[in-house]
């Protein structure tokens, strides 16, 4: 059992923040590594963030339309 965090990734040195477009998994959902959990938009692109590990979503720490800085923990997965 380990707790793995999904963080807002570095997307090049010009991008400092992104907006949450959609939350695709909720607390208690099972996810496989590589499965999309959150959709974000930066000024330039829209992209899906994937589960870093297979397990259960323990917490979702953001809401749709939130603006999050690079490095922010978005969700926690328990393996």
């Amino acid at each position: 059992m380990a707790r793995i965090e999904l963080r807002m990734p570095e997307l090049g040195n010009e991008i400092t923040e992104a907006q949450i477009d959609a939350i695709l998994k909720g607390t208690g959902d099972m996810v496989s590594e590589g499965e999309e959990i959150v959709t974000i938009t930066t000024p330039k692109v829209t992209m899906d963030l994937e589960a870093p590990a297979t397990g259960t979503v323990l917490e979702v720490l953001i809401e749709v339309d939130d603006i999050v800085a690079v490095g922010t923990v978005l969700a926690v997965i328990e393996t």
Binding site: E17, P43, I67
Partner: peptide
């Protein structure tokens, strides 16, 4: 306002 929340030149 952040460019994520305001209309930008783009």
């Amino acid at each position: 306002i952040s460019p994520l929340k305001a209309i930008t030149l783009r």
